[in-house]
Design a binder for these strands. Structure first.
Lengths: 188, 188
DNA sequence: TCAAACAAACCGTCTGGTCGGTACAGAAAG
DNA sequence: CTTTCTGTACCGACCAGACGGTTTGTTTGA
């Protein structure tokens, strides 16, 4: 894999994510991706042999970025639950702080992708299932799951722009979630 | 609107929701809806002049059912926050108890619809924004929003079937959410 | 008998994917 | 040093199928 090829591939993935977040998944056409990336459709299909391959690549990149960020948060000394809260915090509220940059929109792109086709969802299910399994073995599984659910719900809310609270309230919510996550991690 | 017409329309909406939940929104084609409903495409288009009209009807039916259920829960004496929790509880865990029947799948159909196109989302935004505005004026807005987010996140989790906890844990989560919602309503 | 309630063939567009070709950077050959 | 060859990266016209919507025809019930 040459350097040049990699750059183009990244451009294509960037273009695809841009389209998904700005226009939705149903507007994600090969022509549009190629045009946005400044490449011909032939060029696009050279790198990603099918639309599915392209979407898979999007999911995989997001997955990798997310995992790396989570790992780095744990290396900073945070427990698994608190690191999970901070993962959302970083990607939703302070994207500039994160070494690996995942902004809300990219998360959203992933989520929408996830929503549209079960097939892409399956790629995540196994990973996430094992991941959340540990959440059910903390000192307070009920509270842990509530925290988890709250974060996912908050993400959805931000995505759809529905019932989004003022910034201070949002900060306060995150703060309280971190506080509780920290308490749970301490007990575990 | 004759009786016969109404039955067919309901059949069509049922078929459409079935398809969305079993195969995803991208498989929601007019041909497929017609076929599933046991009606020709012409018949379908007779009742819903366009695909958008059909989807709008799906959203509106769900919206209406949800509003009615929420209102009935409040009439049972529950405060706004607790009623909100119980709304999700009814539709997610005890669908058989509800007078107005909304099962998980229909909720899911709505959500998926919501996820795919901003246009359908806009139909809800205003309503939901004013609705959630009252949640920011309870005795504990932070906790109230956490409860709300948790319910939405839980719904998503159920939808995608990712990281779904065992039934007892799910029950415990709902129980604790109801408990806290009740406390907030009492203080407000 | 008349309108509502369908049926079904048909059309135009959109879109994923194919295919033949081009540009070009190096390696091999002479 | 020049020519030939080869593989990578990319282009863009084209095709086939899917899908939303139209049109025209048929049934059915009051």
């Amino acid at each position: 894999m040459t350097n040049r090829s990699n750059i183009t591939k990244q451009k294509l993935l960037d273009a695809a994510t841009d389209i998904i977040m700005s226009q939705g998944v149903h507007q994600l056409t090969l022509d549009e991706v190629a045009k946005t990336a400044g490449v011909s459709k032939g060029g696009l299909l050279y790198h990603y042999a099918s639309k599915e391959a392209l979407m898979t690549a999007i999911v995989e990149r997001l997955q990798q970025e997310q995992n790396e960020l989570y790992a780095s948060l744990q290396q900073e000394g945070h427990g698994p639950v608190e690191a999970f809260v901070r993962l959302f915090d970083e990607t939703n509220l302070h994207p500039e702080r994160a070494a690996i940059h995942i902004d809300v929109e990219k998360m959203i792109a992933f989520l929408t992708l996830f929503a549209v086709d079960q097939e892409y969802a399956d790629r995540w299910k196994q990973d996430l299932d094992t991941f959340f399994a540990q959440f059910q073995k903390t000192a307070d599984p009920v509270e842990t799951m509530i925290i988890r659910y709250a974060l996912e719900g908050m993400m959805m809310s931000e995505h759809f722009g529905v019932g989004v609270p003022p910034a201070e309230l949002k900060q306060a919510i995150i703060a309280r979630l971190i506080e509780r996550a920290h308490a749970i991690d301490s007990q575990s």
